[in-house]
Simulated assay, not measured.
Amino acid sequence: MIGGYHPVSEALVRYGLIVRGGFNFVDDEDVPLGPSGVSAKSALLIGQAGAAPWPHFQRWLGQQARDIANPLDTWSREVIGAFAQEFGARAVSPSDRPYLPFQQWAMRAEGLKPSPLGVLMHPTYGLWHAYRGALLFEDEISLAQAHKATHICDTCVAKPCLKSCPVDAYSADGFAHRACLAHVRGADGAPCRAGGCLDRNACPYGAAYRYPADVQAFHMAAFAGV
């Protein structure tokens, strides 16, 4: 039995990462494997609030001798993988294939729901948070069941997140991926390339955790391939 996750939380701080909640698997679900190859019994989600990991990632990136195709994923795997070894767990990533249900795990661990943009809305962090990986254990974690968080989007009448994009990339019909890419890559997409998604930035919640412009530009460049 793992008595909570405070040692993991304390270890993650030096990389700007935090535990984003955890849960125990139940017998009737498709359970991933733990470090020894038997079914895991519990999961701790690892992620960030705001851009706290950015300086740690930038320091690491500056020490790399070659270009890396997906540097943030690589850094996250390296850091979380080291903690997996330290705490006797298996590290998994949202980009692992076959894909693991990270969004469902996140909603389960923290009681969150998606915003109109698809990003999970957090009552404190707003849209400015992320999940970088998870630790899978072969013992149960002793922790309280996650309470369903207040979903801010349900009480937001103005919905500025659906009114700021010049090409209406987000709507009730879903995400217009091609229209978004064409705009970001085009002459009129400079504001998006420099400062991130206009719809996401229009959301007033979690402003204290908003990613700085250079961080948003990094993510936009990775998304749009520019």
Results as ranks from 00 to 15, higher is better:
residue 97 R to K: 15
residue 98 P to S: 10
residue 98 P to N: 10
residue 98 P to F: 11
residue 99 Y to E: 13
residue 99 Y to Q: 11
residue 101 P to G: 12
residue 101 P to K: 09
residue 101 P to H: 06
residue 104 Q to R: 12
residue 106 A to D: 11
residue 106 A to H: 14
residue 108 R to W: 04
residue 110 E to F: 00
residue 110 E to L: 15
residue 111 G to S: 08
residue 113 K to E: 14
residue 113 K to W: 11
residue 113 K to T: 12
residue 115 S to T: 03
residue 115 S to P: 06
residue 117 L to H: 09
residue 119 V to T: 13
residue 120 L to E: 02
residue 123 P to S: 06
residue 123 P to F: 02
residue 126 G to P: 04
residue 126 G to S: 03
residue 127 L to M: 03
residue 128 W to N: 02
residue 128 W to D: 06
residue 129 H to L: 03
residue 129 H to V: 05
residue 133 G to Q: 04
residue 135 L to S: 01
residue 135 L to V: 06
residue 136 L to P: 04
residue 137 F to H: 13
residue 137 F to V: 10
residue 140 E to D: 11
residue 140 E to K: 03
residue 140 E to L: 09
residue 142 S to L: 11
residue 142 S to C: 07
residue 143 L to V: 04
residue 144 A to T: 12
residue 145 Q to Y: 05
residue 149 A to S: 02
residue 149 A to M: 06
residue 149 A to L: 00
residue 155 T to Q: 14
residue 156 C to A: 01
residue 164 S to G: 10
residue 166 P to K: 07
residue 166 P to E: 04
residue 168 D to A: 15
residue 168 D to G: 04
residue 169 A to C: 08
residue 171 S to K: 04
residue 171 S to Y: 05
residue 172 A to T: 11
residue 175 F to K: 00
residue 177 H to Y: 15
residue 179 A to D: 15
residue 180 C to G: 11
residue 180 C to A: 12
residue 181 L to H: 06
residue 184 V to A: 15
residue 190 A to F: 05
residue 190 A to W: 00
residue 191 P to A: 07
residue 191 P to S: 13
residue 191 P to N: 13
residue 195 G to I: 02
residue 195 G to M: 13
residue 195 G to Y: 02
residue 196 G to I: 10
residue 196 G to A: 09
residue 198 L to F: 11
residue 200 R to S: 08
residue 201 N to M: 15
residue 204 P to Q: 15
residue 205 Y to H: 14
residue 206 G to Q: 05
residue 207 A to P: 01
residue 210 R to D: 00
